[in-house]
Design a protein around this nucleic acid. Structure first.
Length: 345
DNA sequence: TAAACGTGGAG
DNA sequence: TCTCCAAGTTT
């Protein structure tokens, strides 16, 4: 009898698993450390649509500041948002706090996929991943890596996202009962290191002999993705208002783009439309330049206007010391604008 | 179902 | 410079 796909993959993982800060060694028992599920959850949320390299420093920072889910649950919202600044998709940070508070209130993470799925910020993928990796339960873990590996091994020609149902069924068919977490991470490591989107390294792949897409000679063709749409170009203006070594910062509304983040005041630009370009208060404004920034669904040119004033700008906001601007936790767009303003002044 | 939602690195 | 896209979720 020949080895199954899961046996081959697990054997490969035992040799080639990446050494990651949130991971336990392949084949080892689940850590007895009571903060283990917290670390798995934190890493999984950070890794949503985000590269391992980008996550590493944030994971270390969060663990240093909030070593347990209980400490995170008691954190001040603004401090968590500031610590997340630069990582992107800020609804994750908002949901992270909500989730931490629910988990702390109920005395720990639920252990089943079904219960995990009810927590804020945990969708199908993350709930399955935590059930498998943190608690060793069999769960069908399907992320973009698994989609790619499965679509190729089984030569699933239907385009995404329609192919998801078939891909999930195929993934279910090769998911073992034992070492569920290792299997899930093995699939993701294989997708990340070997079965890559472009130029897959098939000669290094433990599933080469099982792979129908390899047999066709064009594995990189799968999975078939839908055509992407053009993103609109937008213009906006941000305001760099200073008063004796401090700058005026606002906190953006809790939903929408960069929601909940401290920011420079702006003219109301959005992904849907350009800003009005009107200054928030009268004065001797200076043109400081412009920054370019790409979002998923819009590209923005943000003009930066500067004003030194004694007046208090209208609306909610706070004066923030320029020598502590790092601590404000500006999203990358506004960090770029601030850098420009500081360099020009 | 499709659109909203960030960022930085690779090619 | 430019396009693609990485451990997705929410509405």
């Amino acid at each position: 009898m020949t080895a199954s796909i899961s046996d081959k993959l697990i054997a490969w993982y035992d040799k080639h698993a990446r050494d990651l800060p949130w991971r336990h060694p392949p084949g080892s028992p689940l850590p007895v450390d009571p903060t283990w599920p917290y670390r798995v959850w934190l890493s999984e949320v950070m890794l949503q649509q985000t590269t391992v390299a980008a996550v590493k420093p944030y994971f270390a920072k969060f663990l240093a500041i909030w070593p347990t889910v209980e400490t995170l649950a008691e954190a001040v919202d603004e401090e968590v948002m500031a610590a997340w600044a630069g990582l992107g998709y800020y609804s994750r940070a908002r949901n992270l706090l909500k989730c931490a508070r629910e988990v702390a209130a109920r005395g720990g993470f639920p252990r089943t996929e079904t219960e995990l799925r009810k927590l804020p910020g945990l969708g199908d993928y993350t709930a399955a991943a935590i059930a498998a990796i943190a608690f060793g339960q069999r769960a069908v873990v399907v992320d973009a890596n698994v989609e790619r590996v499965v679509a190729r091994v089984f030569a699933i020609e239907a385009p995404l996202p329609g192919a998801r149902k078939a891909i999930r069924a195929a993934a279910d068919g090769i998911t073992p009962d034992a070492r569920a977490g290792d299997f899930a991470q093995a699939m993701m490591d294989l997708g990340a290191q070997t079965c890559t989107t472009r130029r897959p390294r098939c000669l290094l792949c433990p599933l080469r002999e099982d792979c129908r897409a390899f047999a066709t000679g064009e594995p990189e063709r799968l999975p078939v993705k839908p055509p992407k749409k053009r993103v609109p170009e937008r213009c906006g203006t941000a305001f760099w208002i200073t008063r004796e070594g401090e700058v005026w910062l606002v906190t953006r509304p809790g939903t929408g783009m960069l929601g909940g983040m401290r920011a420079l005041p702006d003219d109301g630009w959005s992904a849907q439309g350009d800003g009005a370009g009107e200054v928030p208060l009268a004065g001797d404004w200076h043109e400081l330049g412009a920054v370019r920034h790409g979002f998923t669904h819009a590209h923005l040119t943000l003009r930066v206007l500067g004003l030194e004033t004694q007046a208090t700008p209208p609306g909610e906001g706070q004066w923030w010391p320029l020598d502590r601007l790092e601590e404000a936790g500006l999203a990358t767009l506004f960090a770029k604008a601030a850098r420009l303003a500081l360099a020009s002044g």
